[in-house]
C-alpha cells in the first residue's frame, strides 16, 4: 500500500493512497484545514468526490479511522442489551418503609415492576436475593427495570410517597 504526496500550489497538499486492485483514494488537504476526499475505480476512471469536510470534521473522521477516537459516553443514547430496561442503584435508609422487611413482603416487584438482582451490603454482595432475604438499613439495592419503574422504586424505597 503506497501513498503518493504532492503539493498543489495555492491550495495545499494532495495524498494518493493505493487501495486493493486499481482503486485509489485521493485526499486534498487545503491550507485552511478543509479536506476533500475523492475515490477512483481505476487508472482510466474519473475521480468522484465523496466527501468535503471542514478541518474539524476531517480531524474527527481521521481519529475514528485511526481507532483513536474517544468521547465520554452519553447515557441517554446508550443502548443496553436489556431493551428498554436499565440497571440502577437505590439505597435503603434507616427510615425507609422497606427496611427490616423481607424482599417478598416489601412487594417491590409487584408494586414497581423492578426486579432486585443483587444487594450490596457493606463489603458483601448478595447475588440473586430470594423473597426471604431481609432488607436492612444501609443496603444498596441493584434493580433492573424501565426508567419509569426505577423512578417508582426510588420513591417507594425513600418513603416519600
Amino acid at each position: 500500500m503506497r501513498v503518493y504526496e504532492s503539493e498543489v500550489p495555492g491550495v495545499g497538499r494532495k495524498f494518493e493512497l493505493e487501495l486493493t486492485g486499481d482503486e485509489s483514494v485521493v485526499v486534498v488537504v487545503h491550507h485552511d484545514g478543509r479536506c476533500e476526499l475523492f475515490h477512483r475505480d481505476g487508472p482510466d476512471a474519473d475521480a468522484e468526490k465523496i466527501l468535503d469536510l471542514k478541518g474539524e470534521q476531517a480531524n474527527r473522521l481521521g481519529s475514528i479511522l485511526e481507532g483513536a477516537y474517544f468521547e465520554s459516553v452519553d447515557v441517554d443514547s446508550l443502548s443496553v442489551p436489556l431493551g428498554e430496561a436499565i440497571i440502577e442503584w437505590v439505597e435503603v435508609d434507616a427510615d425507609s418503609p422497606v427496611a427490616g422487611e423481607t424482599l417478598g413482603n416489601s412487594k417491590i416487584r409487584t408494586a414497581t415492576g423492578t426486579s432486585i438482582i443483587a444487594i450490596q451490603r457493606g463489603e458483601e454482595t448478595v447475588a440473586n436475593p430470594t423473597p426471604e432475604t431481609k432488607l436492612e438499613s444501609g443496603d444498596l439495592l441493584v434493580a433492573v427495570g424501565t426508567r419509569e419503574e426505577q423512578a417508582e422504586l426510588a420513591t417507594m424505597v425513600e418513603g416519600d410517597a
Binding site: V11, K14, V26, A47, E48, K49
Partner: peptide, 11 residues
Amino acid sequence: LDLGWIANPES
C-alpha cells in the same frame, strides 16, 4: 478542484 480533476492524472 471543482471538477474533481485534481484527483486525476491530468492534474
